[in-house]
Amino acid sequence: MSLGKFLIRKTAIAIATMVAVSFLIFLALEVNIEEVAVKVLGQYSTADQRAAWLLQNGYNDPFLIRYLRWLANFVTGDWGQSTYYRAPVMDMVLPRLGASAILAGGALLVIIIFGLGLGILAGMRPGTVLDRVISVFSVITTSIPDFASAVFLSGIFVFWLGLLPGASTMISGFSFRELILPVSVLGLYSMGYLARVTRASMVDVMSTHYIRTARLKGASLSRIVLRHALRNALITPVTVIMLQLPWLLSGVIVVEVFYAYKGFGTLLYDAALNQDIYLIEACAMISVLVVVLSQILSDVLYGWLNPRIELGAKA
């Protein structure tokens, strides 16, 4: 399959997924119009007020019509008004998305550097003490929930050593120091997994014939790893990195709430607490969109890095 065809197929599947997701979200949040009216107008609105509002906003139309209208509005950029903040949802979501992208980008950088690095170090000489230590370390970091590692790291670096700020409100402009803790917590959780995948892949490659040949020719370990092994060993881990995004998005919510960081995660969280349904809908749609896009990117990356794999072939 050519890259063009492959992309068209993947995009078609992605669009079908997004349509299904949007239907689920709409079904979950807007099937009961009485509840929508209560959420928008508040607990203390009268039945008459709700009925008038429902009529005014076309809620008396059949469900499918309402869904299609909502979907059309969403696609054309009309995401409705936040019922709590009384502001257009889109204007609120986009800047927050940018703030979270900084956080997630930093975390990805940590994950890539330490995850790949530790994985390569462990997989170079499987069975050694270093390998064991790294393996145990990665199990520990992936087992501790985000909020617990946030408590532990803050306990050490904020309260005990007093080195870092305990909140990341960015209240007086962008601050790199305030990013360190949230980025570390996010990175720590996902990097263990990447390290394990990298290690497994590295161990596989190091036991192949061409590496043995290089060894027998007397090449040094560092040369073998850098010149011969890495290129093949990194194919799987690199695609795994993209698949970490959904986890990262979940982690972003916890970490942003913990450090009071004004990003996408706290926006969704506050929207949930305020029952701000249009904001929740938009945030849910955007987060699924990010996941779906990252899956396509990961597939393409895999095919590009590994020309032996035929794009779209069943693995």
């Binding site: 997924t17 949040l29 959904p246 969280y269 945030c283 987060s287 996941v291």
Partner: peptide, 22 residues
């Protein structure tokens, strides 16, 4: 499979939040 993929394309926590809100 399609249904499973649809549900799995939600970040876990986002899915929980939506369900719990509802």
């Amino acid at each position: 499979c399609f249904l499973a993929n649809v549900i799995l394309s939600f970040p876990v926590l986002v899915l929980y939040i939506v369900i719990i809100v509802v």
